Simulated scan of single mutants.
Amino acid sequence: MPFAEGNEKAGEKLFKTRCASCHTVEKGGSSKTGPNLNGLFGRVSGQGTDSFSYSDASKKAAVSWGEQTLFDYLENPKKFMPGTKMAFGGLKKDKDRNDLITYLKKSTS
């Protein structure tokens, strides 16, 4: 299924409950267990945040992050990118992924 614009407010709630313990989105924000996501769209996996130690899988995948790649990745990160350090099990519902990505597009640019 392709990405479709979602509900930004619902995506913000999802980010706060499912992602914020490991990621930040603010420009100049620190990395936590996962990298800061500011400037995510158009960035290549394994690059972008000098202070974060990316997995070899993320570096080798060289995925350009956009709406569709995030939509596919967030369904099941370990299946999409075997060897990733991301412990997140994924968002199975298309609506949840659409909402989260819509929020990320606004909050990380």
Rank of each mutant, 00 (worst) to 15 (best):
G11A: 04
K32R: 09
D99V: 13
K106R: 09
E8P: 03
K93F: 04
G42V: 07
T69G: 12
K93T: 09
G39P: 05
E12R: 14
G29E: 09
L70V: 11
S64K: 15
R43A: 02
S31L: 03
C22S: 04
K16R: 11
P35F: 01
G11E: 03
S31F: 06
P77C: 10
G83I: 13
G89K: 15
T33K: 13
M81F: 12
K32M: 15
C22N: 03
K13S: 04
D56A: 11
G28T: 00
S51G: 11
Y73I: 03
S55G: 14
G28N: 01
G29A: 01
D94W: 09
A62P: 10
M86Q: 04
F41G: 06
K60W: 10
N38C: 04
S31V: 01
T69S: 12
V44N: 03
R18M: 10
D72F: 02
G89Y: 12
D99W: 05
L37Q: 04
N76I: 14
G39N: 07
T102G: 02
S109E: 15
Y54I: 02
N38G: 01
L74Y: 07
G29M: 08
T102S: 09
K13M: 10
S21R: 07
M1N: 14
S53Y: 10
T84M: 10
E26K: 02
K16C: 06
S30N: 07
K32F: 08
M86A: 08
S64N: 08
K105C: 13
S64D: 05
Y73R: 00
T17D: 05
F80K: 07
G39E: 08
V44A: 07
S58Y: 04
S30A: 11
T17I: 08
N38Q: 08
P82T: 07
T49R: 14
F88I: 15
G28R: 01
Q68I: 11
F15T: 03
T17G: 05
M81S: 13
D72I: 14
E67A: 09
D72L: 07
S31P: 09
C19W: 00
G46K: 00
E12Y: 11
S64R: 12
G83A: 09
F80G: 04
P77R: 06
C19F: 02
S109I: 04
E26L: 00
V44I: 12
F71V: 10
G39V: 12
K92P: 01
G11P: 07
A10W: 06
S45W: 02
H23K: 07
A87D: 13
A4V: 15
Q68M: 14
K16M: 12
Q47L: 03
R43Q: 09
D96M: 02
S30L: 05
A87P: 15
D94F: 13
L37N: 00
K27V: 13
N38H: 15
F52E: 05
Y54S: 00
D56R: 10
Y103D: 02
K27A: 14
Y73D: 02
G83F: 06
T108L: 00
A87H: 14
P82D: 05
V25A: 02
